[in-house]
């Protein structure tokens, strides 16, 4: 036996096979182990952090969608109160007390004054955008000061597209969210960048202003009594009422029946005034009901 061992017959191939296998496995072990050492946290944890960030981003987008819906409702009512103008081109009446459970003072924007059609060339879409932007931005500000915010949402960051049935806000800047996942080097930071844009299907009711515009065109050229003139106009989805502030100034309230903002209660009412000289016959047909102006404090 000792002689055989000394002669080393049979050892050559066996050692070669065992040696090569051992070297290969040791090499593979160190390679894999070295790769594992790069992860201070288990595999997949950083991806989970990205998932967390995406989830928080979705929460922000949900908040923005909801804010847009609420702001759209607010904008519809606010715009209607101002007669469709974000800044009335022909001025307003003095504040008048409105009858109701809680009497509130309202001003009426002039649509026709000194024989000029103040509504001509009015951009109701731009007016809506202005009011909507104010309301929406205010909700974003509220979110940013809220203690558990996920990320800062820039309020001056949108280009709006408003149509009769859609409001879209295209974000200019992105929101970037970061989370440190591992201590080691470059691999340690999870980043999620997204644009907080939104688009909501929403009936804005702006087309109603064009119907009112056409109706006012016919009202100012109508020679009959105001009530008869109103009876002649056909504006589906709009409910008209009026009163005389003085012998030449009519105050109109046009209810937008197709708008659905249920939490607001009543339907929005477009308020505007027309100053029009009337004939004696017209005055007799529609006796003036004076609404006393209240002094501005």
């Amino acid at each position: 036996m000792r002689k055989l061992l000394k002669s080393r017959k049979g050892f050559d191939w066996a050692f070669l096979i065992a040696g090569v296998t051992l070297i290969c496995l040791v090499f593979l072990f160190f390679q894999l182990n070295k790769k594992m050492e790069h992860h201070d946290k288990p595999i997949g944890e950083m991806q989970m952090d990205v998932v967390d960030l995406v989830q928080k981003g979705d929460n922000i987008l949900f908040y923005l969608d909801q804010s847009a819906r609420l702001s759209a409702c607010d904008a519809i009512y606010a715009l209607a109160d101002k007669g469709g103008f974000s800044s009335p081109p022909c001025g307003q009446t003095l504040p008048l007390l409105e009858q109701g459970p809680v009497p509130l003072p309202y001003t009426y924007s002039f649509w026709y004054n000194d024989e000029s059609k103040c509504y001509e060339g009015a951009d109701f879409y731009a007016g809506f955008k202005d009011v909507f932007n104010d309301k929406f931005r205010s909700r974003i500000d509220d979110y940013n000061i809220f203690k558990d915010k996920y990320a800062y949402v820039p309020p001056y960051n949108y280009e709006f597209l408003v149509t009769d049935n859609l409001i879209a806000g295209s974000a200019i800047k992105s929101i970037e969210m970061k989370k440190v996942s591992a201590v080691a080097g470059e691999l340690g930071e999870a980043r999620y960048v997204f644009k907080p844009s939104f688009a909501i299907d929403f009936k804005t009711g702006i087309e109603d202003y064009f119907s009112v515009q056409a109706a006012v065109d016919s009202l100012i050229s109508c020679d009959k009594s105001m009530q008869e003139c109103i009876n002649d106009i056909n504006t589906p989805g709009l409910k008209w009422s009026f009163e005389m502030m003085n012998p030449t100034t009519y105050l109109f309230k046009v209810e937008q029946e197709n708008i659905d903002c249920r939490f607001k209660g009543n339907k929005p009412v477009i308020r505007f005034a027309i100053e029009k000289t009337i004939t004696i016959q017209q005055a007799l047909a529609t006796p003036p009901v004076a609404a006393p102006p209240i002094p501005v404090p």
Binding site: F62, Y63, Q66, C73, D142, K264
Partner: peptide, 8 residues
């Protein structure tokens, strides 16, 4: 989730 309400 955070949600805005109608009374701001």
């Amino acid at each position: 989730s955070y949600i805005p309400t109608s009374n701001d």
